[in-house]
Every structure is written in structure tokens, then in C-alpha cells.
Design a protein around this nucleic acid. Structure first.
Lengths: 227, 227
DNA sequence: CCAGCCAGATTGTATGACTTCAAGACCGTA
DNA sequence: TACGGTCTTGAAGTCATACAATCTGGCTGG
């Protein structure tokens, strides 16, 4: 029922331009348009079967989201995010996700806490049986659930955008050998604190977790790794 | 010289559509379009002397910035920000501006520190001679300078946007009697920590300062104050 | 060999026409 | 009078087209 309402609400709000924006965003995040790819308006009108107006609208929106850059009379390209910027993005995420974790610790319902406990078990299983793809998905799910539980729309939206911006680096980092072993206990500590309604504990756990992501990124930066 | 380069760079990037976006944003923030005002595209084309496309582009951008809402086939209106949301916005600012204050403490040059000291003196003067308008401007200047000194573009941009979103409430709060007397020592502590290159001190001072803003907003919310 | 110029490609912008939608006016009936 | 449905209208949503401005790359002539 709620789902249905939600669906019709989305349909009501979604013009073809908005739908095009979403599709283009997904295509960029999925790598269909890799960083540096040119986004030529006419080509996109064919690809998505809409007019140039819709394409321009989508590009404007994605520029403000930081996924696309535009030069006057030169056109739009998929933004290439340097490692130094990925570090800043993750620092901002750290500040905001700590806030979310703290709120989640306060607002979690008994169902939420049970679900989080289950999630911790699933993550542990995935790592011990070396299903790293599953672990990566559970990882993202955890961050999303924390954000939902916190009931803090402002921070949630900002974090979602920041995650998109750095998704390329985030993805590469998750593939790093040894990362799961390092991050699992951090995630477990985070979940334990949220389940225990320990606000400052949850904030600290999230901060610590993202500290380790940041230092991994910084480590790469020092090695001169480039995209 | 640097200014000139910057200027031409802006001109190169600024199409009339982008300029229109900036003007419309300023007009909204200045109150020329108060919260709830309808933004009818045809009227705006006359006001700004540009085509409908430019107006639509501006509206799309301001929607993603959270200043404007849009309903399908109904049009755009200036967003009305409820107090509860202003609280969330300020909480997010707290998280991000603490980060900025910490970085500013690390990155400030001797010139920056001298300037900040001067700023503290000016603020104190303004309050003691009851020039509250000046104090309010110096207040904004301080936050902007801290953000510049921190050299953290990601957080700086996010905070600038958050400030815009809540500017209405922020403005009303600044007019509150007793606010300057409460916030002045907090600002002085913040400046002292940044000048002393005390990272965690600066973070704490910024957090404390915005804590007092948040509780003032919450206090209003409980009184049932509405916009 | 190179400076300058021309042509193609692409964006920037405006305009007109048409469709879709929602709100309010209008009208007929009980 | 009150209710319910239909009609009108205002505005957004979309597309096609046109033309100007600008960049790019290649060609040409000295």
C-alpha cells in the first residue's frame, strides 16, 4: 500500500526529463560513460530518445551534483575526480556519517537493531567464506540503512551525493586485498554501538572506520596511483 | 593579475544561463522572491530578459540546491524551509564546519592569523558599541574566511549551500536580542584556537558555537514559532 | 614549414507549436 | 441550496527548428 502510494507519487513527479537525468546518472556511475567521456547532446538525444532540452536539463543537474563538468562551447564530460579530491570527499563523508551514526543510535527501533545484528552476522559470513562481492554489497547496504534509520534527510542526501562522486575510487578500494579483513571489525564495532544505543560510541566507530578509508586513499596518493 | 585571470575565466565559463541562475539565486536569498512565491517561467523571462530555456535551466539548478521546489505541471515555488529542517541543516553545518575549523587551524598562514586576530577585535568593538548589523556581517565574514583558509573545497561548497538553504532562519536568529552577547565569546574562542594552530580546539569551538545556534533554533521550534 | 584561414562540429539561445496536467469556473440535477 | 461532473484556461513539459557563437582540425598559400 505504502509502496503503491510511493510509486504513484514518483510517477507523478517524474517527467521524462527527470527520468533521463536518473538514467544518465546511473549510466555514469555504472561506468557506461567512464571518467573523461564526452557527453555530446545530440548523441544522448538518440540514446535516450528525448529532445535536446531534456538532455541539457539532465546535464545541468549532474554538473551541480559534481558528476559532470562543462566548459563553455566545449560541451560536457564525465568528471574525473583526482585522488586528493576523493580524500576531501571522504573527509566530508566522515563528518556527516558520524552525525548519521549518532542519530541512528538514538532512533533505531527494536526491528532496526535486530536487522543490524543480522547484517553483522551476514558480513562476517561473507568475509570468512571469502565472498568479497557480497561483502561489498552488504557494506553499502549497512551505510544506507544507518542513514535511513537516522531520519536525517539533509545529511542523508549530502552523503548519497558524496558517495556518488567518489564511487570510482571507493570501488577500486573495495577490491584491494586485505580491505575486508581490516574493515569488518570496524563495521562490527559500529553496529554494536548503534544496537547498544550508544550515540558517541557510534559516532566514534564511524569516524574510525572512515579514518581507515581516508588513510588508505592517502596511501595510494603517496604512491602516485592515478585513475 | 590573479584577479584578472579569475575574471576572464569566469566570463569564459559564464553563459547567460549561468548568469541568470546566479541572479535568481541572489534574488531569492535577498527576499525579492520570499518563501512560497511562485516562479512563473514566462514572468522570469521578462524580468531577466532571457529565453525560457535559460529560466528552466536556472530552476533545475536551484531545485537541486534545495532553494526551490517543483511540482509536475504546476511549476516552481521558492522553498519554504520548516524549522525542523533548519535544525538538521545546522547540524550538518556543524559537522562540516568543525572539519573546516580544524583544517583552518592547520593551514592558516601568519597573515591569516593576523587577519583573524584583527577580526576578533572588530567583532568585539561592534558588539560593545552595539553596531549589531556590522557584527552580523563580521560574523558571516569569519565563517567565510575560516572556510577559505581551510583549503577544503568540498566542505566549503557544501557549507555554502547549507547556509543558503537556512539563510532565512539564520537571519531571524541574528536579530534576536542577546544573541551577539552569547556568540561573541564563542567566536573569540574559535579564533583563538585557529590562531594557536590548535586543531581539536578549533573543532570543539566551532561545534560549541553551532550547538548554541541549534539549541536556539530548537527553542523556537518548541515555542511553535513559524515562518 | 608555418601562419592564417576556412569548414565542420557542437554548444548557446530563442522561438513556435503542440501536449499534458491541474485548478477553478461553470452548469445541470437532486 | 448543495452536490457532482464537465469545460475552460493557465502554465509547465516537450520537441523541432533555426541561427549565432565558438572551438577544432585541417588545408592552403606564401
Amino acid at each position: 500500500m505504502l509502496l503503491l502510494v510511493n510509486l504513484t507519487l514518483r510517477l507523478r513527479t517524474m517527467s521524462s526529463a527527470d527520468a533521463t537525468t536518473d538514467q544518465l546518472r546511473v549510466d555514469i556511475l555504472d561506468g557506461a560513460f567512464p571518467p573523461g567521456a564526452r557527453l555530446v547532446e545530440l548523441q544522448l538525444t538518440e540514446r535516450y530518445g528525448v529532445g535536446r532540452a531534456a538532455i541539457r536539463s539532465a546535464i545541468v543537474e549532474l554538473v551541480t551534483e559534481g558528476l559532470v563538468t562543462r566548459e563553455a562551447n566545449r560541451g560536457a564530460t564525465v568528471r574525473r575526480v583526482p585522488l586528493a579530491e576523493a580524500v576531501q570527499i571522504t573527509e566530508a563523508r566522515q563528518a556527516l556519517e558520524s552525525l548519521l551514526a549518532g542519530h541512528a543510535a538514538l532512533n533505531a527501533t527494536p526491528q532496526d537493531r535486530a536487522e543490524l545484528r543480522q547484517l553483522a552476522a551476514d558480513m562476517s559470513d561473507a568475509v570468512s567464506s571469502q565472498r568479497y562481492g557480497d561483502y561489498s554489497e552488504l557494506n553499502q547496504l549497512l551505510h544506507r540503512r544507518i542513514a535511513q534509520i537516522a531520519q536525517h534527510e539533509i545529511a542523508r542526501d549530502l552523503v548519497a551525493n558524496l558517495r556518488n562522486r567518489a564511487s570510482h575510487h571507493q570501488f577500486r578500494l573495495a577490491l584491494q586485498p586485505g580491505r575486508p579483513a581490516e574493515s569488518l571489525p570496524q563495521h562490527e564495532a559500529l553496529i554494536a554501538a548503534v544496537v547498544a544505543a550508544d550515540r558517541s560510541g557510534a559516532e566514534d566507530a564511524m569516524r574510525t572506520h572512515l579514518d581507515s578509508v581516508i588513510s588508505a586513499l592517502r596511501h595510494w596518493a603517496e604512491l602516485g596511483v592515478e585513475v
